[in-house]
Write a protein that binds this DNA or RNA. Structure first.
Lengths: 343, 343
DNA sequence: TACACCAATCAAACCGCTTTGGATAAATTT
DNA sequence: AAATTTATCCAAAGCGGTTTGATTGGTGTA
């Protein structure tokens, strides 16, 4: 059933039917009600493509997922972020279009998105420190909001991020307060902006107390359980092993714990662990009592917020860029305790 | 830059330019090359919406993600499945449209997808045993492929699934061979088809040996680390505890292991664990030596296959429904060992 | 030389919707 | 009574492509 059919069936013009359904005032309430009922009855929905061609608005938001050609990992955080954003989109009648882009031809991909005109705006995932996509999107004039930030970006742009630096500074301070002096950092890839900021926080906490972290203890990689496990195992077998671990994700924390327990050590007693917790739906950090002491910030909430900001920008292009910085909670769990005095 | 502009710039008609770019034979190679170069130079891309309006093909595939209103879990498997499907889509020039649908108004959602005409087909996720979406999609004539199956479906339809029953039957046989007689089943929600089949396999292995599984040991829930942990802890503290666990996901297996170790037991020695492993990119089952003995089947591969089948169906609607059944590998890891003789 | 045929190109219709710019009849002013 | 205004409704022009059905000039054939 399309507009034409519906309107002939009603004995009205397409114009009137269209206006009736879209709430324009120049149609009588009586006709509007009649039209509405007929539309309902025949299950009429305007064709998205035709409408967007006519209006110039696509009512769709693009999410561009960087897929590394080398390590083909999908960020586990992604599902929850999408779920948060999706809540907002479906409430506002937007579709969500996913595009997987290999990291070697991002520029072409974004240009294509713009010129094919299939979305009104995009959410940028996984920003690097030097993020070429930001000036690019600015240049080609596609509204966007970044989940995260790009440290070296110059012009203002919209973003939604967590205060990574502060979170990891606080976490490190906690461990230092507990007497730990050799704290390992199990971090993500440092070209990722968030990982860089986390290291900054970790280092700052040390420097603030006149301490210098041991570079040996700072590890950086794709955040898999396996990497975390293997790295932890290696570090623990060294002559002067760390007494605490600061970890960038729950998945990694599981790997750290596994390595700790394999060595017959007890987490929270022999070795302390603090992790960041994105509050993923399938990986809750324990029940009432958290398993891991953690810096906590919901990525789903970040998804919601990003979507809201982007839609606002699309509805009012004159708006200035908006930014949202979430502060992470620091929750105490069972994985931390005072540093043992070495025998 | 649109077709009109490009064609006037070239001094050709829109027809010729369009045909040149789309590889139609009735245009000279010379002109075609000229057009191609101009298009390249001006970074021309046909507008998706206009094209799809004209052709009737949208070049987009919908993925409808069921979001439970009660428990708002996002299936962690989803990211990898999407990544697999996305590979195929981007190779074939398709977009991927995500729609989150609350489980209470699915029918309306699918009807809307059809009548809005924004996708050429859909992938159905998370089929239940009685899956109303299958007859619905058939009725409204939207091509689809199901990731998984629906036991009670009557008409043929396309699906890509893993042999859940066989996998869990084999896993159970392995544990029985090792002498285990009290095997706990940590399963997903049993209205989900895959969970039902897995239980069937588990039970069949018992029955085939004249054994009857203890209903107390069969647990079913959303597959979170926490549920698995708590359930395992409870089971282990009972008078006649299980000596082995058959688990439906890696995430759950991590919870099971945690509970085992909290009790001071050693996995693979005191208690055996077999899990299903979806080969998620961020949660590999160990390196060369698997941590968990596992039934293994890549969900990313399932994503690829589903996408391929769906595109075939779209390209040739007369095709009969196609089905793909992956057999899971059974890999031996460190989490299984012979049942200890009870003192 | 006349005819058919082919290769290359184009004008115009169409996809399904929105929106501009009337048209008409009734209601209100002057 | 004529002139405006108002309330409804409509025809037609896009939006940016694809596709149908000519049109043209050049070749080959009888």
């Amino acid at each position: 059933m399309n507009l034409k059919e519906l309107s002939t069936k009603l004995g009205l013009s397409q114009t009137t039917v269209s206006r009736a359904l879209n709430g324009y005032p120049e149609v009588s309430e009586e006709t509007r009600e009649k039209v509405r009922r007929a539309a309902e009855e025949h299950n009429y929905r305007p064709n998205t493509r035709a409408r967007s061609l006519a209006t110039g608005r696509t009512m769709a938001i693009g999410h561009v997922i960087p897929v590394s050609t080398k390590h083909e990992m999908v960020n586990p955080v992604f599902g929850d972020f999408i779920a948060g954003a999706g809540e907002v989109y479906s409430r506002e009648g937007y579709d969500m279009v996913l595009t997987l882009v290999e990291d070697n031809n991002e520029e072409a991909a974004y240009r294509q998105i713009k010129s094919r005109g299939s979305v009104d705006g995009v959410v940028v995932h996984g920003p690097l420190m030097d993020e070429p996509r930001i000036p690019l999107l600015k240049k080609i004039g596609l509204p966007f909001v970044v989940h995260g930030r790009a440290t070296n970006a110059v012009d203002p742009y919209s973003w939604v991020d967590m205060n990574n630096r502060r979170a990891f500074e606080r976490a490190t301070e906690l461990l230092l307060d507990l007497g730990h002096r050799r704290i390992a950092l199990i971090n993500g890839l440092e070209r990722m902006d968030f990982a860089f900021r986390r290291r900054e926080g970790y280092e700052a906490a040390h420097y603030n107390r006149g301490l210098t972290p041991d570079p040996i203890l700072m590890c950086s990689h794709e955040m898999t359980e396996l990497f975390a496990h293997d790295t932890t195992a290696t570090l623990l077998s060294q002559p002067n092993p760390p007494t605490a671990f600061l970890v960038s994700s729950m998945i990694c924390a599981l790997g750290v714990r596994r390595a700790i327990e394999e060595r017959g050590l007890i987490m929270g007693k022999d070795v302390s662990v603090v992790t960041h917790d994105d509050v993923l739906s399938y990986l809750r950090n324990g029940g009432d009592v958290p398993i891991f002491t953690a810096t906590r910030s919901s990525v789903r909430e970040a998804g919601r917020k990003s979507a809201e900001i982007l839609l606002q920008m699309i509805n009012d292009p004159t708006r200035d860029p908006e930014t949202v910085l979430f502060e992470a909670e620091l929750v105490l769990g069972q994985s931390t305790g005072p540093a043992l005095v070495r025998a």
